[in-house]
């Protein structure tokens, strides 16, 4: 059944017990993103340390989210996969993730890069849900851009 391929156990686990949830200090940027078609909302903070640009390290990604299981679980997985990496590595993971969920099921995900996030491959079959899967991830990208713009200006 397709439904099971979308709602894999990993996704439901993250939904029920989200990792890294809650807004924490310190942070350099906070963004609020909404999905205007359904009203799902996420607030994401990033805390970057060390180098500049892609070399900076994602020290923390904290968030508060209201939304469906897909958007909540996706943000939880983003926390797991992005924190502790450089911005460059995080953006590579994000790109692989985005390519997979926007791929209409035609993109073979790289498990080495995506780890738990491969569970979201099933979402690609449902175009209406792709935005849910991307909400927290794109908020992270925006937050990093704002943090680094703020840092250099």
């Amino acid at each position: 059944m397709k439904l099971d391929s979308m709602y894999q156990e990993i996704i439901l686990d993250h939904y029920r017990n989200p990792h890294g949830r809650g807004l924490r200090d310190p942070f350099e940027a906070e963004v609020h993103h909404v999905n205007p078609t359904c009203g799902d909302e996420v607030t994401v903070r990033v805390h970057l340390t060390g180098g500049e640009g892609l070399d900076a390290k994602v020290e923390d990604l904290s968030y508060d989210a209201l939304g469906c299981s897909i958007s909540q679980a996706a943000t939880s997985v983003a926390h797991d996969l992005l924190v502790g990496h450089t911005v460059g590595e995080a953006f590579e993971t994000l790109e692989a993730y985005q390519t997979m969920v926007q791929g209409r099921g035609k993109v073979e995900p790289d498990e080495d890069v995506l780890d738990d996030a491969v569970a979201f491959a099933g979402v690609a079959a449902y175009p209406a849900r792709v935005k849910c899967a991307l909400l927290g991830w794109l908020a992270f990208k925006d937050a990093v851009a704002q943090a680094q713009a703020g840092g250099t200006s």
Binding site: L3, G39, G67, C68, S69, R129
Partner: peptide, 21 residues
């Protein structure tokens, strides 16, 4: 149960409803 998730199961049963605001 978030409406999006509910509607996904309804859709899987062939039922078209609207979800969101």
């Amino acid at each position: 149960l978030h409406p999006h998730d509910a509607s996904q199961v309804l859709d899987d049963s062939g039922i078209a409803v609207r979800v969101g605001h």
